[in-house]
């Protein structure tokens, strides 16, 4: 296992190309939360020729719907949801400039191919450790679709969010690698 690699947003193609499936990563900077319905709405906006409600270039999308913040907390528990549900909406977002996705679980062949094509990366946050992950969040702000409640699009500023590289831009897939060993 290589030592933990520190990366920051916005993500560059070069930063993504330095990563390999199985690397542990510590990510700092801004990430954008979006999950099921938000993905549909973002892609509909792109199809209409409209922009995204955040700077797309080098953006990292976190498939997450956090718990409400208890009094005195910046955010409630926050962690990844299962990523495959966002597969049908991921390629247009990568084309628009998004360069990283944080979630958990397997991606489709089309998404893995697009990750290669756009020199992007798919990172796993550990599922079910959302109390721990919430401590990495230093700012939390709703950017779009507040009516979606826990599924609203938010900008989270994170410090040292612990992640693992699943799909690197070289075509490697951690989940497949471990099974073939």
């Amino acid at each position: 296992m290589r030592p933990v690699i520190e990366i920051a947003t916005p993500l560059t193609a070069a930063a993504c190309r330095s990563l390999r499936a199985g690397d542990r990563v510590s990510l700092s900077g801004d990430v954008i939360t979006a999950r099921d319905t938000a993905h549909r709405l973002l892609c509909e906006a792109l199809a209409r020729g409209e922009g995204l409600p955040f700077p797309a270039e080098g953006a990292v999308i976190f498939y997450a719907g956090p718990c409400p913040a208890p009094p005195g907390f910046i955010i409630g528990a926050v962690g990844p949801t299962t990523s495959y549900r966002m597969d049908p909406f991921t390629v247009p977002l990568l084309k628009a400039g998004v360069r990283g996705m944080i979630g958990k679980g397997k991606r489709s062949a089309a998404v893995r191919e697009a990750i290669k094509e756009h020199s992007a990366v798919y990172l796993a946050a550990l599922g079910g450790i959302a109390a721990l992950l919430s401590r990495c969040v230093t700012q939390n702000e709703i950017l779009a679709y507040p009516d979606l409640g826990p599924e609203a699009v938010r900008r989270l500023t994170v410090r040292n969010l612990p992640l693992v590289v699943v799909n690197d831009p070289w075509g490697n897939d951690l989940y497949e690698q471990v099974l073939s060993r």
């Binding site: 997450a64 719907g65 208890p70 409630g76 079910g128 959302a130 109390a131 721990l132 919430s134 401590r135």
Partner: peptide
Amino acid sequence: RHALEMILENDDVAKGCFLPLCQDT
């Protein structure tokens, strides 16, 4: 092992701060 250690650490934090273990409650 890294994942299992984080699961245990998360349990400690959740208990200590009365936060949910997972955001999907």
